[in-house]
Write a protein that binds this DNA or RNA. Structure first.
Lengths: 239, 239
DNA sequence: GTGGTTATATATTGCTGATATATTGAAGAT
DNA sequence: ATCTTCAATATATCAGCAATATATAACCAC
């Protein structure tokens, strides 16, 4: 196990681009920032499943007091990212094949429906935004880093969640997105060759956004389902 | 505004049967119990939307320290039941017509799909449990109280969530169920004549459970959708 | 006096570090 | 093998300070 200084350096290299949007929008409370930092470290498996999280250690590392650390850990518990075992310790939760199945099954179904809603509810100014996103996606041809791919993936999905215009659904899908993202990271860690295949997602996303732009709800739903499921089958091969 | 003693009496009369299952399963930590008590008081509009919740007051009323109160309030914030405005106060969140639309739209879609899954995944021992539930539903003929109806409704839905065998989906649906339950209570408070119509739900639920028992996924999904939407249209009339 | 600005007081949550207590697991004693 | 003790850890709480939003009061130019 390497020390925290290296860890922080690695995080900066890894996540900043992926979670950029949230770092900007981060609430100013220490508890909120601590939550986001810990959550992102767990998603990217910088803190792998099973890791013991000691309050005292986190206090030192994050340079905050007990309250923000405790609040962050509790929130992670509700998210399912950590398991608090009474008077034994707090651990990063394990994930298994059942989690993979359950998370992707739910996400595929709910997200494809949300994409249908997005196609039905897109407004004119959002169509402009979509076109811009499509252009960006088409321009990125060269070799892409993992972070670039995931950052783009995140932007596209959050755009669609937003256009679906259901704030409760947005929260639900954002949560499932985080859950499946961690599963993806765990799979990639075990099987590094998984990474390059992810570039195919760009093609899916262009199809998806174009269907949304056309207002073609059926096609949008179909492509979104295929997109999420393709992640699932890629991950299933190695997990 | 009446005092807390009356409030507690009213809560006992109102919610105990509705939330029975959770009171039993309640974790033994003070924070957990405080959370459940507050959440249920908010759902049943004993604490109506807009109510100011002062930490100091809750400490006295619940007879616990500041830590459990704060943890409960934070969790309620993540649930969307309260809004914490830093150094201004914590308020029970408001609900409007948009919330009604969004919550029921999402719940109808997700829950009807879960009911389909339940029909596909029902095991033999669960079929027995379903039959028992159907018998109970059919026996309850006389005039039912609100609490009885909602307690039954809750049991039926949680049974279906469980049989769908996706723990993430279970949590998602349980949350949406709580959200829609509060909307229902708010509507009933404004329009007391709404209550008796709810007895119709019993019929829906029998149809739903029977379809699940037969393994008729299409019918199960269809009936579940109609069931949730019927709540929505009843509430929409008065909100 | 009126209207507007500034200073002050108050209320409330955010955060810290310390204390007390309970539970668990493991090391050591019998 | 069984029991005891101890270290580690979490829960729960407290007292107090910090930060800040809001309300109130004081002030001043006109």
């Amino acid at each position: 196990m390497f020390g925290y200084a290296e860890m922080d350096r690695e995080r900066n290299a890894l996540n900043m681009s992926v979670f950029e949007a949230e770092y900007e929008a981060a609430e100013s409370t220490l508890a909120e920032r601590t939550y986001i930092r810990l959550r992102d470290d767990i998603i990217t498996t910088l803190l792998p499943p099973g890791t013991l999280l000691r309050e005292a250690e986190l206090m030192k590392r994050m340079e905050v007091g007990r309250t923000p650390v405790r609040e962050a850990l509790q929130r992670l518990q509700y998210d399912g990212f950590v398991v608090v075992s009474a008077r034994r310790g707090t651990f990063v939760s394990k994930i298994d094949i059942n989690d993979l199945t359950a998370v992707y099954e739910a996400r595929a179904r709910i997200e494809s429906w949300a994409t249908r809603l997005a196609a039905e509810r897109l407004r004119e100014f959002e169509r402009q935004e979509a076109r811009q996103l499509i252009d960006e996606l088409k321009q990125t041809t060269g070799p892409m880093t993992l972070e670039d791919i995931l950052a783009l993936d995140r932007r596209v999905h959050r755009f669609i969640y937003k256009v679906a215009k259901n704030p409760f659904l947005f929260d639900t899908l954002d949560h499932y997105h985080n859950l499946s993202l961690r599963i993806l990271y765990v799979a990639m860690k075990r099987f590094p060759t998984l990474v390059p295949r992810l570039e195919d997602v760009l093609h899916d996303q262009v199809l998806m956004l174009e269907a949304v732009c056309r207002g073609d709800a059926d096609e949008a739903e179909r492509v979104a389902m295929a997109h999420v499921m393709s992640f699932e089958s890629e991950v299933r091969k190695v997990i």
